[in-house]
Design a protein around this nucleic acid. Structure first.
Lengths: 217, 217
DNA sequence: ATATATTTTTAGATAACTCTAAACTTTTAA
DNA sequence: TTAAAAGTTTAGAGTTATCTAAAAATATAT
């Protein structure tokens, strides 16, 4: 059994890419967990002792298979709870993160499996992020940044790369919600902004927005 | 904001009758929270400093209005989650206590209000225990112990005084689930056991069972 | 009413997690 | 290629919640 705190560190390492080969560095973990580098170092020793991470002093960390499994399970729980909050309780997609952050630490495999069934085994959370199955497998569709599309390409808004409430609220106002079909009218080389058609309505989004909106072709 | 641990102590004091005038003693709190008396004393000082309990050394504690409100809110959350687990996720009534014990500490008024609405504002949890409303008011029906009924009285099984999985499983097997209508055929003075009619079926329950089954007339 | 038993509190330690400040490594850039 | 900057770890300390053992207060029983 891992503590609440250990779980949060594992999750942070996972989100920083620790499931791959490139080592995650101490400072970035400190930033994401709102702690100081010294605290991170202490915890890294502990997680390494438990066999959850590969840690070499001064060289950063990666997750072991065991650590990766634990982290993915937390991600699974987080995303399933987000679906519950939006689909069943009527929260907006920009309101659910903090509550899911607490719910993800509830410890019961049975609870999560039943929740998964109750929700109809959703494949993505309200932001389009994929939900791993109980074996930790992601059944993901290929998503492309809006910024990488060219004129005349058509696709469906299927995810976001940024989860701030501000960005999500902007998308909502602009009618750029998940599932919406869009066509690229013009991709402006000058500033990276993109002209889109949503049905017959034309709108322009900035480069920043285009980089954070994910499209399924 | 109170810590997870503080909340558990407040809840324990509440369940031991600390909302009334009779002071709850240190040892009983230690027993219920699975700690030692010395730990309880430490925490009582802390809760007293926060204005959540009335504490006089060696004389036990009662809850202040503030502490009572906090405790009742935890009870509300616990019971609403239990309803969710049974009604929506299909858990049995003897399986939900431990999970609800974790869920009750999730911090979001909005979450609980929406959950309440989602569940249809239930007035009782799966064991018949009343669920206080958001203002902490219990809208309770009058319940009487089966042991206090006399021959020919009829009523509906509406609650339990003991929550152990063993007792709940026994009731399930015996067909004594919530909502079942029963008629007392005979209350035996000799050993306190009771003969019941459930429809046309006759069964006998021990004195212990009769004391822990609550009936609405 | 006083000795004994029970209950509660205090004293002193430990474990988990955090911090600041200082020391040490690695990276970067002249 | 070495001096400065950036990043990381260690040392030492604080907080919260826990414990055991001993001391103090209260209750009980002859």
């Amino acid at each position: 059994m891992n503590s609440f705190t250990e779980e949060n560190y594992l999750k942070a390492i996972y989100h920083l890419g620790g499931a791959g080969n490139i080592a995650v560095n101490t400072n970035s973990i400190a930033e994401l967990t709102n702690t100081k580098a010294a605290s991170v170092t202490d915890m890294l020793k502990k997680l390494a002792d438990k066999g959850l991470i590969n840690y070499i002093k001064y060289q950063g960390v990666t997750l072991t298979e065991k650590g990766k499994g634990t982290a993915i399970n937390i991600v699974r729980k987080h995303r399933l709870w987000e679906v519950f909050l939006v689909e069943k309780l009527g929260f907006k997609w920009d309101e659910v993160h903090d509550i899911a952050e607490e719910l993800e630490h509830i410890n019961s495999e049975q609870l999560i499996d039943r929740l998964d069934t109750f929700l109809g085994n959703p494949k993505a959370d309200p932001h389009g992020d994929p939900i791993p199955d109980r074996d930790g497998i992601f059944h993901k569709k290929e998503l492309i940044k809006l910024a990488d599309l060219i004129a005349k390409q058509e696709g469906k808004i299927s995810g976001v790369n940024e989860h701030s409430a501000a960005f999500l609220q902007y998308l909502e106002k602009a009618g750029l919600t998940l599932g919406t079909t869009i066509v690229v009218k013009e991709a402006l080389e000058y500033d990276g902004s993109v002209n889109l058609l949503i049905g017959k309505k034309e709108i322009t989004v900035s480069s920043k927005v285009a980089k954070n909106l994910l499209i399924q072709l």
